[in-house]
């Protein structure tokens, strides 16, 4: 196949060991996401969608099953290789923004470049370029805790973009934002997906946010219960 899948997950299981015994969170998940897709992941609380995202982001490891990211079998990689993969292939956007406090936006956005060994001048140039791309031109010296939530999320997206990743994983990126700001952020994601061809996987529990995506994956009790067009949404149980 010409375009190799960005994400290919087979028979993925995850269970947590508790005092009461093993609690399964993901059961036999199979999923393939091709380059350039814009996928929304939905599901009620406890359905396993966040755990699934953490595994996709190489932040957590599955109990069993295989996960191939960008042609690499993640299960065979050591911690340093995983860190490199996170650095080069994935851009993270979190619900809580997760910017470093007490650091300005330029330093925050440039952070992934630090771990890639990029020189200071190149870091600054790229960070400023990314800030401009997300509409934060001139905010380089602003402190991350002194700007609005929408601006913080834009900065976080700039940080996710700075290493020019193939994949952006966004875990409830609009969860802490008002409707108008949410719309702006989603427009930004749509633009990145359309213009730069970046694959986006986004977790949300809001239908109107999921509506920006082209494909919808729904989780219930650790299983994929729907995988298809977003138009299905109207009929889907809330």
């Amino acid at each position: 196949m010409a375009s190799e899948a960005v994400i290919h997950v087979e028979r993925l299981c995850k269970q947590y060991e508790t005092a009461a015994g093993a609690v399964p969170v993901l059961r036999d998940v199979n999923l393939t996401i091709a380059p350039g897709e814009f996928v929304a992941v939905m599901g009620p609380s406890g359905s396993g969608k966040s755990t699934f995202m953490n595994i996709l982001g190489c932040l957590d490891t599955p109990t069993s099953g295989s996960y191939v990211l960008n042609g690499k079998d993640v299960g065979t990689l050591d911690t340093d290789q995983l860190a490199q993969l996170r650095n080069e292939v994935i851009g993270f956007v979190f619900q809580g923004f997760n910017l470093l406090p007490r650091a300005n936006l330029e330093d925050n956005v440039a952070l992934p470049l630090v771990y890639r060994g990029v020189t200071k001048t190149a870091r600054t140039a790229q960070a400023l370029e990314m800030l401009e791309k997300v509409g934060l031109k001139g905010y380089g010296n602003s402190m991350s805790n002194q700007i609005s939530g929408g601006q913080q999320q834009r900065a976080a997206i700039a940080r996710a973009l700075v290493n020019r990743p193939r994949l952006i994983l966004a875990d409830e990126p609009t969860g802490n934002l008002d409707t108008a700001t949410s719309r702006e952020i989603m427009h930004l994601f749509t633009r990145l997906n359309k213009e730069d061809g970046i694959t986006i996987v986004l977790v949300t529990h809001e239908h109107d946010i999921a509506a920006y995506a082209k494909r919808l994956v729904q989780f219930v009790d650790g299983r994929v219960v729907h995988d298809g067009a977003v138009t299905h949404l109207e009929e889907a149980p809330a």
């Binding site: 340093d80 860190a83 997760n98 992934p112 290493n163």
Partner: peptide
């Protein structure tokens, strides 16, 4: 700890 998590998420290795 959270800062460490953020750093790891964007690619910091253990030795970093």
């Amino acid at each position: 700890t959270r800062e460490i998590g953020i750093r790891m998420a964007v690619g910091a290795r253990q030795r970093d």
